[in-house]
Amino acid sequence: MLSRILVPMDNSEHASHALEYALENHPEADVTVLHIVGVPSMMMGAAVGLSLEDDISEAAAERAEPVFERAREVADEHGREIDEIVGVGHPARNIIDRAEDYDTIVLGSHGENWSRATRQFLVGNITETVSKRAPVPVIIVR
């Protein structure tokens, strides 16, 4: 029986389906939603603003809030509560580094940055990396 599940989420539909899967199929487990905002670097598009912030943790939490709002809506629909964690860094590495604290990872097959055509043929890069390197079982949800 699984008692602790990590569900990495972005704004994608696949991520919401992963959370729904975890909540529906493991009603006794504690579910933690992880949102990673990216590496704070002057060289990365969306993370540029984060690297210019005085308080990176506060800025990261602000950026994660829309994802957590959606996660809370999904959890409320299932009568469940979730824990929330904000990560800063490379998504796959961040997920893998936290994995040992959980019994399994449940994640969507593709993130929000994939085109429709690409999603039909490939498993997302982050999903593939996590599934190959995680020290715990990984459940991939479409």
Rank of each mutant, 00 (worst) to 15 (best):
T104Y: 04
D76L: 09
S51A: 14
R63C: 08
L6G: 02
S41A: 12
G79H: 08
A59V: 04
H110T: 09
V67M: 08
P66L: 12
R63N: 12
G49I: 06
R119Y: 05
G89E: 15
G38I: 03
P27V: 08
D103A: 06
A18G: 07
A15C: 06
Y21E: 11
E13V: 00
E62D: 15
E81G: 11
E73R: 05
Y102D: 08
E84D: 10
G89F: 10
F68V: 01
E100K: 11
E100M: 10
R70S: 11
H26L: 13
A75D: 07
D103P: 00
N25R: 13
I36R: 05
L19W: 01
V86N: 05
E84W: 02
A75K: 02
I95T: 03
A117R: 09
A60S: 13
E28T: 05
R119P: 00
P40V: 09
A18W: 01
W114P: 02
S109P: 00
A75W: 05
E20D: 15
G111S: 10
N11F: 06
A92Q: 07
I85Y: 10
Y102F: 15
M43F: 15
T32D: 06
A59D: 08
V86S: 07
H35E: 09
V39H: 12
H17G: 03
H14Q: 12
